[in-house]
Amino acid sequence: MPLPDQSRRPRIYLAGPDVFRPDAERVFAGLKAQCDALGLQGVAPTDAGVDTRRGSDDEIAQRIYEGNVRLLRGSDGVIAHLAPFRGLEPDAGTVFEVGYAAALGLPVVAYGVPEASYEQRVCAAIGCARDAQGAMREAGSGTMVEGLGQRMNLMLTRSTAIEADAAAALRRIAALLGR
């Protein structure tokens, strides 16, 4: 993938469930300030300028989707807040954005991912046991728990770099983009 034009700041899409926080505006302002300091331009999902006050829920949802996809297509990279959200997994919308960015060939750096393996976190939350073949399974349903020592589902760990926090993720994406 060719490096972006050095005469303009690379646009970094700031993916994550932070849009749902009551202090989302402050969170994104802080991330954008960190981007500025690294010679990057931070782009929050809320920068799509979507009118959420008129139309049906389906119309609003479609406009949000189209706006976020448009922002992703205009970005040079993505940082993604993949901390567990409402359970053991990251926010589904953010996971979609990571996959979309990967399909576009954009570099993606994740942050907020717990240190333990996904298997360890699942087994700590619900009972698990190894079957006769050595696969870890949920005790109640027998459903296999993805192992391989990954911190999240392997489709996420193999398509992203993982850093401890947003600041480290921004430094990493800046380095990947030659900043």
Results as ranks from 00 to 15, higher is better:
Ala15Ile: 08
Gly16His: 01
Gly16Val: 01
Pro17Ser: 12
Asp18Asn: 08
Arg21Gly: 03
Arg26Tyr: 01
Val27Ile: 14
Val27Thr: 05
Val27Gly: 01
Phe28Met: 00
Ala29Met: 00
Gly30Leu: 08
Gly30Thr: 08
Lys32Leu: 01
Lys32Glu: 04
Ala37His: 00
Leu38Gly: 06
Gln41Glu: 15
Gln41Thr: 15
Gly42Val: 15
Gly42Ala: 14
Val43Glu: 10
Val50His: 08
Val50Asn: 06
Asp51Thr: 14
Arg54Ser: 15
Gly55Val: 14
Gly55Asn: 13
Ser56Met: 05
Ala61Val: 06
Glu66Arg: 12
Glu66Leu: 14
Val69Gln: 12
Val69Ile: 15
Val69Glu: 12
Arg70Lys: 15
Leu71Tyr: 14
Leu72Thr: 11
Arg73Tyr: 07
Arg73Val: 10
Gly74Ala: 08
Val78Trp: 05
His81Gly: 02
Leu82Gln: 01
Pro84Ala: 00
Phe85Ser: 08
Phe85Ala: 04
Gly87Ile: 00
Glu89Ser: 06
Val95Gln: 06
Val95Met: 09
Phe96Glu: 02
Phe96Gln: 02
Gly99Gln: 11
Ala101Lys: 05
Ala101Ile: 06
Ala103Asp: 09
Leu104Gly: 09
Leu104Asn: 08
Gly105Met: 01
Gly105Pro: 03
Val108Ser: 04
Val108Lys: 05
Val109Gln: 10
Val109Lys: 06
Pro114Leu: 04
Arg121His: 03
Val122Thr: 05
Gly127Asp: 13
Cys128Arg: 10
Cys128Trp: 11
Ala129Leu: 15
Arg130Glu: 14
Asp131Ala: 09
Asp131Gly: 09
Gln133Ala: 14
Gly134Ser: 09
Arg137Val: 15
Arg137His: 12
Glu138Lys: 13
Glu138Trp: 12
Ala139Asp: 14
Gly140Met: 13
Ser141Val: 08
